[in-house]
């Protein structure tokens, strides 16, 4: 009787424990960030330059502009981090700089308003379907980087 118990149920118990651990891990990582659907984190250069990554709120901009304005007229590709934006281009009036020039929206001297993300957060479209499919935890700030600033 006892041997039978070991033979049939012990692997089951192990599997259940493993499953529980996996679920707990997923819950911990997914409960960390509750930002808006479509908020884009851009961290191409920020971490390396000692700045907080940029958080681009799609919702805020779509209240004011149709998709076409940025994605056709200003040349933003449909790819998070795929536009190779840097401050020189912005100051030159390209990309964000088309409006973030102190006339339509705040200028580049308001660093913290765009560079407001948690240090170490990877480039991503937050809450996107593809985020749900990648490894849990890969999209939240690395603990070491988060404590730096």
């Amino acid at each position: 009787m006892r041997t039978e118990f070991r033979k049939f149920y012990r692997p089951g118990v192990l599997w259940a424990l493993a499953l529980l651990a996996a679920i707990a891990g997923t819950m911990i990582t997914t409960s960390e960030a509750q930002a808006e659907y479509g908020d884009v984190v851009i961290n191409n250069h920020s971490d390396a330059a000692g700045m907080r990554p940029v958080v681009f709120p799609h919702w805020f901009h779509r209240v004011r502009f149709r998709c076409k304005v940025c994605h056709a007229d200003l040349g933003f590709k449909f790819k998070a981090g795929g536009n190779d934006i840097n401050m020189v281009k912005i100051i030159d009036g390209q990309f964000c700089g088309s409006c973030h020039n102190g006339k339509v929206a705040w200028a580049v001297d308001s660093c913290d308003l765009c560079h407001s993300g948690k240090p170490g957060t990877p480039t991503q479209v937050h809450e996107s379907t593809i985020n749900l499919l990648v490894t849990p935890g890969a999209l939240t700030p690395a603990p070491a980087a988060a404590g730096k600033r």
Partner: peptide, 28 residues
């Protein structure tokens, strides 16, 4: 947990002075 304010949404850094100045989604 829906439409969290920037300081609470897990992506913005609550320690950043700029985070306080951003509009909260629900205000819109």
């Amino acid at each position: 947990k829906r439409n969290a304010a920037p300081a609470e949404d897990g992506i913005h850094d609550p320690a950043s002075p700029g985070t306080m100045l951003l509009q909260a989604p629900l205000a819109s």
